[in-house]
Design a protein around this nucleic acid. Structure first.
Lengths: 144, 144
DNA sequence: TATTGTTATACTCTATAACTATA
DNA sequence: TATAGTTATAGAGTATAACAATA
């Protein structure tokens, strides 16, 4: 099988395309996809997530999460709150402004992603999502 | 739909896993996946590919290809040959040693990739490949 | 004038290691 | 002793711009 049909190569190219399309769509909102992912997860949580939880869900190193939260906090879209249960832990919670930004950004991000997925039917997108989820579920490094 | 089910996010995580698994498998052969892709394409071509062709197929900037070919040439696995047709063009061709390395590396790379794709059946892998190929085919930036 | 290969630069992402404060 | 967050650093990947040789 020729190299251009290698699943790893195709995955890497496709991933790059989706990231670029999403970043382009998010640019007008002052976001990149990494910061956006943190903002989304913070908005979805009820009590806020610890940075450790964020690192686990996103499969990032905790030190990377620090930077992402710093950037979102600097513009006032999330804030760090002390955890009532553990004084080491900081909960990342969205501000009201952060929720608004996230809502507007989500519309553009979805549109950008949809365009990058092109002619795939809804069923095909669901199939792709399901296959990807099964690959991701294998990740051994993610200790969460 | 929660962020963790976002296709872009899942694709990005899955891509990272496949790249890491492949790099780990290739490490004992002194290769990383980017260099390996150039070596594979050079081995598959009959007359050698120009660096421009390589950049087009791999969706990389021509300046990135320079670095990759430099590294493979330094260890004697490929060489640059002048094109008979165009004196600006350099054809990248594998050496005999390069072909041997590629053959051995391919075995390990395939095994590493297969492990990273885990429980996906052959049919599911084919379906994944096909879906990815259709997404990649959309890439507007690839002028090839 | 346009294209191939090249050099240079800057920014993002990835990967580790070490430190602090708490547990 | 282990964990959450933080700082620091180095390497790999991505994105542009400019230049020389050639078409």
């Amino acid at each position: 099988m020729p190299f251009v049909d290698n699943i790893g190569f195709l995955m890497s190219r496709a991933s790059g395309q989706l990231v670029r399309a999403t970043n382009a769509a998010l640019a007008e909102h002052g976001l990149r996809v990494r910061q956006y992912s943190v903002l989304c997860l913070a908005c979805e949580s009820v009590e806020g997530l610890s940075q450790r939880d964020l690192a686990g869900v996103l499969a990032l190193d905790p030190s990377q999460v620090v930077t992402l939260v710093d950037e979102l906090a600097r513009v006032g879209w999330v804030e760090r709150r002390p955890s009532p249960a553990d004084r080491r832990t900081k909960l990342v919670v969205p501000t009201d402004l952060g929720r608004e930004v996230r809502e507007r950004a989500a519309v553009r991000a979805e549109a950008g992603l949809a365009a990058a997925l092109g002619p795939l039917s809804p069923d095909e997108r669901a199939a792709l999502r399901s296959l990807l989820a099964r690959v991701v579920a294998l990740d051994v490094s993610a200790t969460t």
